[in-house]
């Protein structure tokens, strides 16, 4: 078992802001658009450093997506920034036609995803965005697990030709991935080897999965934890290799059970390797106001929920 000390506590959105500034310095094709959330998205440093390449578009997300699509014609690499809710559901048809179907090289960068947005409540806590985005043909979907990985992913997507959905969040969260750890789009990250169960997680819940792994170890259960930071394209070989060894699966995500990471894994397993599996995800429900930790506990996305799901699935082996 590999344990991960907390290096720091930082928000993933700040990782995005740092990554955007860095890629902006090295690649002048990178431009950024923001719909009146520059502070929330941590895009201020980019805007200050590259005022000609930053477009404040106001509270008009549909237009922002169209402008981003247009900016690719002429060779720019646009990064759009707003909350995950307004980055996806609000502008789904604009993304579908002007970006995905048109094959445009737009990077849709979405903060404040999921329940951990907290006190703003369910209007802003989108839990359907991974599903919406992964259904679009040609769309790459990335959900990094901490600040450092979000920064790495923000930089990496510039060199990936094609539309990308990059999802991150609001709260300060444990940083546990070293800043020099390699990041490769589409390549799952084996965080800790184990033999009894495969725990696949993304985003903030990777940390919860690691916490659960330590708890399970105390109870004599060896959990393998794999960070599926790229939900589409899914690293099928990494998933199958782990599941062939452990024979059961728990998936963890800050998203609806319908349509998220768990469903991607389930679809793969149904096709290739039917295996007992449990979901740690929101069960067909909207969220509500509260602190991130209160919400994760209430909606069944906390460390004890991962432990309980593991015990359930072990009984089904």
């Amino acid at each position: 078992m590999t344990t991960y000390p907390v290096l720091d506590k930082k928000d993933t959105r700040s990782g995005f802001g740092e990554g955007l500034l860095e890629i902006g310095k090295t690649d002048d094709r990178v431009v950024a658009l923001c719909a009146d959330l520059t502070g929330s998205l941590k895009m201020g440093d980019f805007a200050k450093a590259f005022p000609d390449r930053f477009f404040q578009v106001g509270v008009a997300e549909a237009n922002m997506m169209g402008m981003a699509a247009g900016l690719t014609i002429g060779g720019k690499i646009p990064y759009t920034g707003t909350f995950a809710n307004f980055s996806t559901g609000r502008v789904y048809d604009q993304i579908r036609q002007s970006i995905a179907y048109s094959g445009k090289n737009v990077k849709i960068c979405a903060s404040h995803a999921g329940l951990t947005l907290g006190e703003d409540g369910a209007t802003h806590q989108i839990l359907e965005d991974i599903g919406l985005m992964k259904m679009l043909p040609g769309m790459t979907v990335i959900v990094p697990c901490d600040h450092n990985q979000t920064k790495q992913a923000t930089i990496a997507i510039a060199d990936h030709e094609g539309p990308v959905y990059l999802r991150f969040g609001r709260p300060k969260w444990p940083v546990f991935i070293a800043s020099d750890t390699p990041f490769e789009i589409g390549k799952a990250q084996l965080l800790s080897e184990g033999t009894d169960v495969s725990i696949f997680a993304c985003g903030h819940l990777v940390w919860k999965a690691l916490q659960a792994m330590e708890e399970l170890q105390k109870q004599g259960i060896s959990a393998e934890v794999i960070n599926i930071h790229t939900i589409k394209p899914l690293d099928e070989e990494a998933v199958l290799t782990s599941v062939r060894k452990t024979g059961c699966v728990v998936t963890c995500e800050e998203h609806q059970r319908h349509g998220g990471l768990g469903d991607s894994i389930a679809q793969l397993l149904a096709r290739e390797l039917p295996t007992p599996m449990e979901y740690v995800a929101v069960n067909d429900s909207f969220g509500e106001s509260g602190t991130p930790e209160q919400l994760l506990a209430k909606y069944g996305l906390d460390t004890p929920d991962v432990v309980a799901a593991t015990k359930r699935v072990l009984k089904r082996k």
């Binding site: 549909a62 402008m67 014609i73 002429g74 604009q94 036609q97 048109s102």
Partner: peptide
């Protein structure tokens, strides 16, 4: 250079493309 059919999207795209021309 752009799919269209679902209405209302082309003006935004045109603005983006025009801004890219200015940057270039």
């Amino acid at each position: 250079r752009m799919a269209s059919g679902s209405l209302g999207q082309g003006l935004s795209v045109g603005i983006g493309a025009a801004l890219a021309k200015k940057l270039n």
